[in-house]
Write a protein that binds this DNA or RNA. Structure first.
Lengths: 170, 170
DNA sequence: GATAGATGCTTGGACGTCCAGAGATGTCGA
DNA sequence: TCGACATCTCTGGACGTCCAAGCATCTATC
């Protein structure tokens, strides 16, 4: 179809291309917002790829890592399911799912609060503590200390994301 | 445990709290990066919530919307599966999954390229075009024109996300 | 105390994403 | 022509997220 020597329809950056098409269709007021949203979606995907690659040797995903990290921080290493969902800002069923897998991996135990037997407490095991500490060291080294932006820009990006969260009622 | 009158362990912003804990554990070099990554993950979640809410009346998700939008832009309304995965930057199986659902909804048809019968072309139907144009109008109005930041900040955020994508080899 | 409503958690199902592997088709060199 | 290899797509399964619905337990009201 094309005479482009590097292949047909070479597109450098799909997001830039989408922005161009939005403007070409007259959606001028929306083009920049579309580009921002699409960029965030893509960055999210790339960052999670990096994070999950680091966590893979520990047989963890980011979702389960966050649960373990939260429990390791908690006093007594115990937090109720509902409270975890609230702190991690995920739905109760996601907590159920994550804790179920962590329990199978023997990184977490389930306990029932005696004063209110409806409440399930997730409790990190000694092995869970070892795993989460090792995983945190690696995550810090390989992702969080090298997030892909200069230190000042990291702060700017964080501030903008915080504003976006606030605008969405977070 | 706590004497906080508004309940125990009131936490305003889980991300700020995580940042504090990271510093308290001496992970100073990683704390800002952790906060940025966590913020992006959260913003992604909130934005997709907004987008999916707008698309719900059209029985679309963002993933399927992107496929439809791409097809509507393409000449003849046709694109091969592999090329869609490349342009949308998702795995081939995600394209298969999205096109399968769109086909059931009669928004897309599958054709086979005669000159190379390995290639499947997704082709948008007239009904698909109607749906995607209507959905685009709503998305522009309700999300992309009101992304939650001032216009200048939208540009800054987009630039930072673009730099992050470049750093990740996008 | 008994019953109605609230709360905490789980289950089952739909969808999206990724991986591993398989099947069909094309291409290239012996 | 034939066989080896590459390419395109799909299937099946694991995991995460969300929704709707259900069960167990607690609380409040009479």
């Amino acid at each position: 179809m094309s005479s482009n020597p590097a292949g047909d329809d070479e597109i450098r950056d799909p997001i830039r291309e989408a922005h161009r098409l939005w403007e070409a269709h007259g959606w001028l007021e929306a083009a920049n917002g579309m580009a921002m949203v699409t960029s965030i979606v893509r960055v999210h995907q790339l960052l999670l790829e990096r994070v999950d690659a680091v966590l893979k040797p520990y047989d963890l995903t980011f979702a389960r890592y966050e649960v373990l990290r939260l429990l390791a921080f908690a006093s007594n290493g115990r937090v109720s399911m509902t409270r975890m969902g609230s702190l991690l800002q995920v739905h109760p069923t996601s907590v159920t799912s994550a804790v179920a897998r962590l329990e199978r991996q023997e990184l977490v135990e389930r306990l029932r609060r005696t004063t209110d037997r409806r409440v399930v407490l997730a409790s990190i095991t000694d092995h869970g503590r070892e795993v989460v500490e090792a995983a945190t060291v690696r995550l810090n080294e390989e992702v969080f200390e090298q997030p892909g932006l200069a230190p000042a820009e990291v702060l700017t990006a964080t501030r903008l994301m915080t504003d976006l969260r606030a605008a969405a009622g977070d």
